[in-house]
Design a protein around this nucleic acid. Structure first.
Lengths: 146, 146
DNA sequence: CTGTATCCTCCACGATACTG
DNA sequence: CAGTATCGTGGAGGATACAG
């Protein structure tokens, strides 16, 4: 059957752009790409912590440094740059001495919190089940015969 | 204010376990850990694709290999192991010749799709805004004076 | 205080080959 | 067909030093 291979999806969809089938294929393809794109950003450990830290208001650079505990100077900078680039975080520099820079979530940034909470809820609800599954798996792997 | 540093949260919460303040602190700490734990699993590129591939029914190993396009033999195995270990995927081996192994989402695995869709929706709704933000950022960085 | 650049380490992942 | 083991490498991320 044509179109079963991901590599050919775009071509297939283009060749038969009017078909409902092809549109569905193409939609799934695009959706996957987009989700992956988002996950590349927010699936990152530090990004989650930064968003969490900013969720209740503006925070200064050094404050976050202390708040997040374990993040390196470099990674915090990079993470904030990434978020700023994507329009999720607003950076405000006050030209004082010493310099003072505040970071805060944009409207877009805040809107991300909701779906993130969705994941959070799932995680909290199922952490016990998962933990148990892990233990059973680790116990069962290696001795299933005599 | 005591407890502002993440490193001391556990100790603080323990020391004043009955305080509402401390409980809130501790809750946030645990929630963060748990979300990070989940993200370590599902934030991964291949994991998302695997869950997607399995979302509509059981699939055999080689079928996924072809379905996912780009995943290596090794990574697919590792990803599936991880998901199986966490109880998100069920592995069924038929002792035929040649061997036939089917993977499918467990109930727990299916329940993950919902929050994943939540993210997906967000991503689809805001991809244009994000893309524009990126272009503006990339354009603005480097020439903001003359 | 905030930001950038440099070096260096380590491990995640792909390629490959072998077994059941 | 499915799974495991081994090796080689690119790049992510920490440490550090310096600049504005």
């Amino acid at each position: 059957m044509a179109g079963s291979k991901a590599a050919s999806r775009r071509a297939d969809a283009q060749a038969a752009a009017t078909t409902g089938e092809a549109r569905k294929e193409e939609d799934r393809y695009v959706e996957c790409r987009v989700v992956l794109d988002v996950l590349d950003r927010i699936g990152d450990k530090w990004t989650v912590m930064v968003v969490g830290a900013l969720s209740e208001g503006p925070v200064r650079f050094n404050a976050m440094m202390r708040l997040i505990e374990g993040v390196s100077h470099r990674m915090l900078t990079l993470t904030l740059r990434g978020l700023e680039r994507d329009g999720l975080v607003k950076r405000t520099a006050y030209p004082t001495i010493p310099p003072k820079v505040e970071y805060e979530l944009t409207v877009l940034g805040h809107s991300l919190i909701e779906p993130l909470r969705s994941l959070s809820r799932w995680a909290m609800q199922n952490r016990a089940v998962i933990e148990q599954a892990r233990q059973e798996f680790d116990a069962g792997s290696g001795r299933e015969g005599p």
